[in-house]
Amino acid sequence: MAATCWSLPDALCRFPALDNGTLREVRKTVDGGFRDLVRNYSDWIDAATAPLQVFLNTLERTFTSTPWLIVLIVLLVLVWASSRSMKIVGGTAIAMVLIGWMGLWEDTMVTLAMVSVCTILAVILGLPIGIIAARSDRMQRLVNPVLDVMQTLPSFVYLIPVVVIFGIGKVPGVIAVVIYAVPPMIRLTNLGIRMVDSEVLEAAEAFGSSPRQKLWNVQLPLALPALMTGVNQTIMMSLSMVVIASMVGVGGLGKNVLQAINNQFFTMGFLNGFALVAIAIVFDRASQAFGHRLQKHREVRHD
């Protein structure tokens, strides 16, 4: 290699990196320190995550142990309640029956429980953060780079500290999925509120609105299309992340996909993948239709 070095001094040829010994020391110190820290606080961490753990287990058990017919009926009623569309309800029924017929009912239930919890958590976290970011430019400047990191850092990378801190299981899975799914909620909430017509906002101000009244009467309702897109994106990202989360011990369809990758089970991989797609479409259509129903003033135009 040195022969191709245009007869330059060594320092200009090879990047003067830290030597391997030092790097090894740095790694060992950081990793070791981190591990010790986690070990010292492990009781505290376990105690803090216990409620979430219990909640997740209970929810999963409820989904899997309830007779399938009841789950199916409840699901269809929920889809009807949010969309009021027989087409979407029919599609949901067909998709769920096909999934069950392929023997994936239980895995699907596990995944559904997981995705529901993750979506709810992401919305509960993302909405207030988005509102705060929309209210102050300084906060937005603070939040944006964090979101950039969350969205571009490969999920495998932040799975490592999550596993070190929380171990293997559902809780680290939920945390990993929420980290992945919350940025669009925050971004779209922020954007939606910032895009609200400034004249309408001025009108709210002129009639003496308090900041809270402005938020509830004007900003959130007018930002609703963006908020619904945010919820929708969060659901989609949760669903795509449950496959990766299966590497840290989350069960369900994701685990099957992981097994299929490891063993090159072509059919199994695709069946489970399509089951995920089916759930995604059901969620997507139902939440979109719900969003449209909330904005019924947009559909009516004068003729």
């Binding site: 101000e205 002129a206 009639f207 003496g208 308090s210 009467n217 004007v218 309702p221 007018l222 609703l224």
Partner: peptide, 22 residues
Amino acid sequence: LRNFRRARTAMVFQKFALLPHR
């Protein structure tokens, strides 16, 4: 100022500034 605006003044805008969802 908020109470002054609520009780004493009302405003009409060029582009109406109505709440579209109401």
